[in-house]
């Protein structure tokens, strides 16, 4: 554990809490992509299968349980409790176009051809692109509420901080995982355009509105 890794995990946790607060307080999931949330739930469930096979630390187990349960809770709020507010007309991204290539890539490029390892690799590839339906939704509606912007910023920062963690670990521990680093770099790059808009607009008190 180093400061970048801890900050990354906390940023990830903050993102999830912000999203739940937004949905709960506004009693609405307008502007949130259910497709991205489905993908994130798949990411956590397929990645954390090792919960039952490998014990790493109490912190690790606790965080995994938090990520799985909050992603399921988010889906419940979106698809059951506040279903009427779900913006399904704009949330039209076809997730099979992400799921299938990620799965094929995990079958081809992985570190061990076992069920748990392939699903872990699949989850890493899928996480890299899981935000695309959300970014697609924002681009379709042309705007995002400020709390949704904060959510996206915290969620994007998390993998960017992990990149710093991986650089640190490479030098300090000679530890590196090429699959995670490659996917994490792609994931962070996908947020760059959003980061730019967030810093130039939302932090100056303006609403995130895309140029027409």
């Amino acid at each position: 554990m180093n400061i970048f890794r801890l900050a990354g995990d906390l940023s990830h946790l903050l993102a999830i809490i912000l999203l739940l607060i937004k949905i709960w307080k506004t009693r609405s999931c307008a502007g949130i992509s259910g497709k991205s949330q489905i993908l994130f739930a798949i990411v956590y469930i397929t990645r954390y299968l090792d919960l039952v096979t490998t014990f790493i630390s109490l912190y690790n187990t606790f965080m995994k349980l938090v990520f799985i349960s909050t992603s399921v809770a988010t889906l419940y709020l979106m698809y059951v409790k506040f279903k009427a507010t779900y913006d399904h007309n704009h949330d039209s991204f076809r997730i099979e176009f992400l799921l299938i290539p990620c799965f094929v890539l995990a079958l081809l490029i992985n570190t061990a051809f076992t069920v748990v390892e392939i699903l872990w690799t699949f989850s890493i590839y899928l996480e890299a692109v899981a935000i695309l339906p959300q970014l697609f939704l924002v681009s379709k509606t042309g705007e995002a509420e400020s709390i949704t912007s904060h959510y996206l910023f915290a969620l994007g920062s998390y993998r960017a901080l992990y990149l710093l963690n991986w650089i640190y670990r490479y030098y300090a521990e000679a530890h590196y995982d090429p699959i995670a680093i490659f996917a994490g770099a792609i994931q962070t790059i996908l947020y760059c355009d959003f980061f730019y808009l967030y810093i130039t607009k939302v932090l100056k008190g303006k609403k995130l509105q895309l140029p027409a």
């Binding site: 995990d9 490998t54 630390s57 690790n60 521990e173 530890h175």
Partner: peptide, 10 residues
Amino acid sequence: AEVDDGHDEL
């Protein structure tokens, strides 16, 4: 603590 088998990151 780091582990050789398994993934210690989230």
